[in-house]
Lab assay of single mutants.
Amino acid sequence: EIEQGFLPKGWEVRHAPNGRPFFIDHNTKTTTWEDPRLKIPAHLRG
């Protein structure tokens, strides 16, 4: 299961009806299937 707590500020994870997680960026009011944490360099992750 995906943990909400480690998402960047302003992001939220939800699950589509088929169970697939998607990510909501409230900063830009966009959604994506890609986990935003995967784009953060390892040394900047919490």
Results as ranks from 00 to 15, higher is better:
residue 6 F to C: 15
residue 13 V to A: 08
residue 33 W to R: 05
residue 5 G to W: 12
residue 2 I to A: 11
residue 14 R to H: 05
residue 23 F to E: 04
residue 20 R to M: 13
residue 5 G to A: 13
residue 29 K to G: 14
residue 45 R to A: 14
residue 43 H to A: 12
residue 43 H to I: 10
residue 11 W to V: 06
residue 5 G to I: 09
residue 40 I to F: 09
residue 17 P to M: 13
residue 43 H to T: 15
residue 25 D to G: 01
residue 20 R to E: 13
residue 12 E to I: 03
residue 8 P to K: 15
residue 36 P to N: 02
residue 42 A to C: 11
residue 24 I to C: 06
residue 19 G to E: 03
residue 44 L to I: 13
residue 23 F to K: 05
residue 3 E to W: 07
residue 10 G to P: 01
residue 2 I to G: 10
residue 10 G to F: 04
residue 10 G to A: 02
residue 40 I to W: 13
residue 23 F to D: 03
residue 33 W to M: 08
residue 24 I to N: 03
residue 32 T to K: 02
residue 41 P to V: 11
residue 28 T to E: 09
residue 5 G to P: 08
residue 42 A to R: 08
residue 5 G to T: 14
residue 3 E to C: 11
residue 31 T to Q: 10
residue 25 D to Y: 02
residue 36 P to D: 01
residue 9 K to R: 10
residue 27 N to F: 10
residue 13 V to D: 01
residue 41 P to I: 14
residue 16 A to Y: 03
residue 10 G to V: 02
residue 7 L to K: 04
residue 36 P to A: 03
residue 12 E to G: 01
residue 11 W to M: 04
residue 11 W to H: 02
residue 1 E to K: 12
residue 13 V to L: 11
residue 28 T to F: 02
residue 39 K to R: 14
residue 24 I to P: 01
residue 8 P to R: 03
residue 38 L to P: 12
residue 24 I to R: 04
residue 40 I to M: 13
residue 2 I to C: 09
residue 26 H to I: 12
residue 25 D to M: 00
residue 26 H to R: 05
residue 32 T to R: 03
residue 39 K to S: 12
residue 29 K to F: 06
residue 45 R to D: 15
residue 41 P to N: 14
residue 8 P to Q: 02
residue 18 N to A: 03
residue 29 K to L: 07
residue 38 L to M: 13
residue 29 K to V: 02
residue 7 L to A: 04
residue 17 P to V: 10
residue 31 T to R: 07
residue 21 P to G: 03
residue 11 W to T: 02
residue 31 T to F: 06
residue 14 R to Y: 06
residue 8 P to F: 07
residue 18 N to Y: 02
residue 19 G to D: 00
residue 35 D to H: 06
residue 22 F to E: 06
residue 34 E to H: 10
residue 4 Q to P: 11
residue 12 E to F: 07
residue 31 T to D: 04
residue 46 G to A: 09
residue 22 F to M: 07
residue 23 F to Q: 02
residue 10 G to E: 04
residue 29 K to P: 01
residue 2 I to R: 11
residue 16 A to E: 06
residue 24 I to M: 04
residue 33 W to G: 06
residue 37 R to A: 04
residue 4 Q to V: 12
residue 34 E to Q: 07
residue 6 F to S: 15
residue 37 R to F: 03
residue 30 T to W: 00
residue 19 G to R: 06
residue 35 D to K: 02
residue 20 R to L: 09
residue 43 H to N: 12
residue 4 Q to I: 07
residue 19 G to C: 01
residue 8 P to Y: 01
residue 11 W to S: 06
residue 17 P to Y: 03
residue 17 P to D: 12
residue 18 N to I: 00
residue 10 G to H: 05
residue 9 K to L: 08
residue 40 I to V: 14
residue 13 V to S: 06
residue 20 R to Y: 04
residue 37 R to L: 06
residue 4 Q to M: 06
residue 45 R to W: 10
residue 24 I to D: 00
residue 6 F to A: 15
residue 14 R to M: 05
residue 44 L to W: 10
residue 21 P to K: 14
residue 21 P to R: 11
residue 42 A to N: 13
residue 36 P to Y: 03
residue 29 K to R: 13
residue 19 G to H: 05
residue 26 H to P: 09
residue 27 N to Q: 07
residue 32 T to G: 04
residue 6 F to N: 15
residue 33 W to E: 09
residue 19 G to N: 04
residue 19 G to I: 00
residue 12 E to C: 02
residue 31 T to S: 14
residue 40 I to R: 13
residue 12 E to N: 00
residue 41 P to S: 11
residue 35 D to S: 03
residue 23 F to L: 03
residue 16 A to Q: 07
residue 2 I to D: 14
residue 25 D to C: 06
residue 1 E to G: 08
residue 46 G to D: 12
residue 6 F to K: 15
residue 31 T to V: 10
residue 13 V to I: 12
residue 10 G to T: 00
residue 21 P to N: 05
residue 36 P to C: 00
residue 3 E to K: 12
residue 42 A to K: 12
residue 11 W to N: 12
residue 9 K to C: 08
residue 5 G to H: 07
residue 29 K to I: 00
residue 9 K to E: 11
residue 37 R to H: 08
residue 9 K to N: 11
residue 22 F to V: 09
residue 32 T to V: 05
residue 40 I to Q: 15
residue 27 N to V: 06
residue 27 N to E: 07
residue 18 N to E: 09
residue 32 T to Y: 04
residue 7 L to D: 04
residue 21 P to V: 11
residue 39 K to T: 13
residue 8 P to W: 01
residue 33 W to H: 08
residue 8 P to N: 04
residue 14 R to G: 11
residue 43 H to R: 10
residue 35 D to Y: 01
residue 43 H to P: 15
residue 42 A to E: 14
residue 41 P to F: 04
residue 14 R to S: 08
residue 5 G to L: 09
residue 29 K to S: 09
residue 31 T to I: 11
residue 27 N to T: 12
residue 3 E to V: 10
residue 20 R to W: 00
residue 44 L to A: 15
residue 24 I to W: 07
residue 5 G to K: 14
residue 18 N to F: 02
residue 40 I to H: 10
residue 46 G to R: 11
residue 37 R to Y: 02
residue 1 E to A: 08
residue 22 F to D: 07
residue 27 N to K: 10
residue 33 W to S: 08
residue 18 N to D: 11
residue 27 N to H: 04
residue 31 T to G: 06
residue 42 A to M: 10
residue 30 T to R: 10
residue 35 D to I: 01
residue 39 K to L: 11
residue 16 A to G: 11
residue 37 R to T: 08
residue 16 A to H: 03
residue 13 V to R: 11
residue 36 P to L: 00
residue 40 I to P: 07
residue 23 F to S: 01
residue 14 R to L: 06
residue 22 F to G: 03
residue 22 F to W: 06
residue 6 F to Q: 08
residue 34 E to S: 10
residue 33 W to T: 09
residue 41 P to A: 12
residue 27 N to S: 08
residue 22 F to P: 02
residue 31 T to C: 13
residue 25 D to R: 03
residue 36 P to T: 00
residue 34 E to G: 05
residue 36 P to Q: 00
residue 10 G to L: 00
residue 18 N to T: 08
residue 28 T to L: 07
residue 6 F to M: 07
residue 37 R to G: 04
residue 24 I to E: 01
residue 45 R to P: 14
residue 11 W to G: 04
residue 34 E to K: 06
residue 2 I to L: 15
residue 8 P to M: 03
residue 36 P to F: 00
residue 19 G to K: 02
residue 12 E to S: 08
residue 30 T to E: 10
residue 11 W to Y: 05
residue 6 F to P: 14
residue 9 K to Y: 07
residue 11 W to F: 02
residue 21 P to D: 06
residue 11 W to D: 04
residue 7 L to P: 05
residue 40 I to S: 14
residue 28 T to Q: 05
residue 44 L to C: 14
residue 17 P to C: 08
residue 15 H to W: 11
residue 7 L to W: 04
residue 20 R to T: 09
residue 44 L to Y: 10
residue 20 R to A: 14
residue 26 H to G: 05
residue 22 F to S: 02
residue 15 H to E: 11
residue 18 N to P: 09
residue 17 P to E: 14
residue 16 A to F: 01
residue 20 R to K: 15
residue 26 H to E: 04
residue 5 G to N: 14
residue 38 L to S: 13
residue 7 L to N: 00
residue 20 R to D: 09
residue 45 R to G: 14
residue 23 F to I: 01
residue 26 H to K: 07
residue 23 F to H: 03
residue 14 R to W: 05
residue 34 E to N: 05
residue 37 R to P: 01
residue 39 K to Q: 06
residue 26 H to F: 09
residue 12 E to H: 09
residue 23 F to W: 11
residue 28 T to G: 10
residue 2 I to Y: 07
residue 11 W to Q: 05
residue 7 L to C: 01
residue 7 L to E: 06
residue 19 G to V: 01
residue 27 N to M: 06
residue 23 F to M: 02
residue 28 T to K: 09
residue 4 Q to H: 10
residue 34 E to L: 10
residue 30 T to H: 15
residue 36 P to R: 00
residue 34 E to R: 08
residue 29 K to W: 08
residue 29 K to E: 07
residue 20 R to I: 08
residue 11 W to R: 05
residue 16 A to I: 10
residue 23 F to R: 00
residue 42 A to Y: 09
residue 38 L to K: 12
residue 7 L to M: 10
residue 45 R to E: 15
residue 41 P to Q: 07
residue 38 L to T: 14
residue 42 A to G: 14
residue 4 Q to K: 15
residue 25 D to T: 00
residue 34 E to V: 10
residue 27 N to A: 08
residue 15 H to F: 12
residue 20 R to G: 01
residue 25 D to K: 01
residue 26 H to D: 05
residue 35 D to P: 04
residue 21 P to T: 05
residue 7 L to I: 05
residue 44 L to H: 15
residue 8 P to I: 04
residue 42 A to H: 12
residue 4 Q to C: 14
residue 30 T to N: 04
residue 40 I to C: 07
residue 45 R to I: 05
residue 35 D to A: 09
residue 27 N to W: 01
residue 40 I to T: 14
residue 42 A to V: 11
residue 39 K to D: 09
residue 16 A to K: 03
residue 44 L to K: 10
residue 15 H to Q: 08
residue 3 E to T: 13
residue 9 K to H: 09
residue 15 H to R: 14
residue 17 P to K: 11
residue 39 K to H: 07
residue 21 P to M: 09
residue 40 I to N: 10
residue 32 T to N: 00
residue 32 T to S: 11
residue 2 I to H: 07
residue 39 K to W: 08
residue 6 F to R: 15
residue 27 N to Y: 04
residue 17 P to F: 05
residue 14 R to F: 08
residue 43 H to S: 14
residue 5 G to M: 10
residue 4 Q to F: 15
residue 31 T to M: 09
residue 15 H to V: 10
residue 14 R to D: 08
residue 18 N to W: 03
residue 38 L to E: 12
residue 19 G to S: 03
residue 8 P to E: 04
residue 27 N to C: 06
residue 29 K to N: 12
residue 5 G to C: 09
residue 34 E to F: 05
residue 28 T to I: 01
residue 11 W to C: 06
residue 44 L to Q: 14
residue 27 N to R: 07
residue 2 I to F: 11
residue 38 L to R: 14
residue 36 P to G: 01
residue 21 P to A: 13
residue 38 L to N: 10
residue 37 R to N: 02
residue 7 L to H: 04
residue 37 R to Q: 03
residue 25 D to Q: 00
residue 31 T to E: 06
residue 26 H to Q: 06
residue 13 V to Q: 11
residue 2 I to M: 13
residue 24 I to V: 12
residue 25 D to F: 00
residue 38 L to F: 09
residue 12 E to P: 00
residue 15 H to A: 12
residue 33 W to N: 06
residue 15 H to P: 05
residue 14 R to V: 10
residue 14 R to C: 12
residue 26 H to M: 08
residue 23 F to A: 06
residue 42 A to D: 11
residue 43 H to K: 13
residue 20 R to V: 12
residue 20 R to H: 13
residue 10 G to Q: 00
residue 38 L to V: 13
residue 4 Q to T: 09
residue 9 K to F: 02
residue 7 L to V: 04
residue 37 R to M: 07
residue 29 K to C: 07
residue 16 A to P: 06
residue 23 F to T: 01
residue 7 L to S: 04
residue 14 R to K: 15
residue 37 R to W: 02
residue 19 G to Q: 03
residue 6 F to V: 14
residue 5 G to R: 11
residue 16 A to R: 03
residue 13 V to E: 15
residue 24 I to T: 03
